[in-house]
């Protein structure tokens, strides 16, 4: 029985490490992506992913105890709040007129506007 518990702890730690690495990759994405909307993708997806991996890994280590319940509650709140905050942020940025750099399109008319970036910042890599 003791080695089963040992292996469960090791699995928990491995999951926690995987969660940590995923959040580092997410942060790298947030740094390197060109505009707000792609950074939102990088940040919120890896946040919830890393939270799931890490909190479940720690819950494995905690076994059946009050700590495991608290970890799951923290996981539930992160899963509830982080995507909502990202959605609200994207909605606010979009309605305040911040157009995505790559291939801007207008919601209402459905047709493709020339990407503002081509004209404004004069980047050569315009939308395809």
């Amino acid at each position: 029985m003791a080695d089963v518990l040992f292996w469960i702890d090791q699995l928990g730690m491995a999951l926690a490490l995987a969660g940590g690495i995923l959040s580092v990759i997410g942060s790298l994405g947030v740094l390197r992506f060109p505009d707000l909307y792609t950074r939102l993708h990088a940040a919120s997806i890896t946040d919830t992913g890393a939270a799931t991996l890490m909190l479940f890994g720690l819950a494995l280590m905690a076994g059946f105890s009050q700590e495991a319940l608290k970890l799951l509650i923290a996981w539930a709140f992160v899963m509830l709040t982080s995507p909502t905050a990202s959605h609200a942020l994207a909605n606010a940025a979009w309605s305040s007129g911040q157009k995505p750099k790559l291939g801007a399109f207008s919601l209402m008319s459905g047709k493709r506007e020339p990407a503002e970036a081509d004209t404004a910042s004069g980047e050569k890599g315009g939308a395809p």
Binding site: L36, A51, M54, L58
Partner: peptide, 19 residues
């Protein structure tokens, strides 16, 4: 808005760090 994004994501990472 980038700064708000960074603050929000930083908060989520802090939750994991405390755990």
């Amino acid at each position: 808005y980038d700064r708000i994004l960074a603050a929000n994501s930083f908060g989520t990472k802090v939750v994991l760090f405390i755990a």
